[in-house]
Simulated scan of single mutants.
Amino acid sequence: MRQILFMLISLFFLFSCKREKNQDVYSEDAKIVDINNPTSVAIEDFITDVDTIRLEVTDSSLLGDIHQIHIMNDKFYILDIKSNAVFIFARNGDFIKKISRVGQGPLEYIKINNMELDYKQKHIIFSDTFSRRIFICDEYGELVDVKNLSFIPNVILARNNNYLNFYAGYQKVYDSKEMENFNIHILDDNGKFISSLLENKTPLRIDVASTSCIDYDSQSEDLLFQPVFSNCIYKIDTNNVAHVEYVFRNKSEYKLLNPNEQKKMTYIYDIENTILEKEKEGYLLSWGSIFNLDDYCFFVMRGWNYPKYIYYEKATGRSVMIDPNKMTGNSALRQIFETTIRQTEGNYFYTSISSLLVDELVEKLPEGKLKTFFQNNNTVDSNPLIIKYKMKFPQ
Results as ranks from 00 to 15, higher is better:
L5M: 13
S10M: 14
S16G: 09
D24Y: 10
V25L: 13
S27R: 09
A30K: 11
I35D: 01
T39L: 11
S40G: 08
I53T: 01
R54G: 00
V57F: 13
S60C: 12
D65Y: 06
K82T: 07
F87S: 09
I88T: 00
I96W: 00
R101Q: 07
Q104H: 05
E108N: 07
K111W: 15
Y119H: 11
K120W: 01
H123I: 08
S127K: 15
T129L: 13
S131Q: 15
R132I: 06
D138W: 02
L143G: 01
N148Q: 13
F151H: 05
R159K: 14
N162R: 13
Q171I: 10
D175A: 08
E178M: 08
I186M: 10
D189Q: 06
G191Q: 09
S195E: 07
S196Q: 11
L197A: 03
E199I: 12
T202E: 15
E221Q: 09
Q226S: 13
V228S: 06
N240V: 11
A242Y: 02
Y246N: 09
V247Q: 11
N250Q: 10
P259Q: 04
Y267S: 07
I268C: 04
Y269D: 06
Y269C: 09
D270S: 10
E277A: 10
E277D: 08
L284N: 00
L293F: 01
F299Q: 07
W304T: 04
N305Y: 15
P307K: 05
A315H: 09
M321K: 05
A332G: 02
A332N: 00
R334I: 08
E338H: 03
T339R: 15
T339H: 08
T351D: 01
S355I: 12
V362P: 01
K364Y: 03
L365D: 00
N376H: 03
F393W: 05
P394A: 08
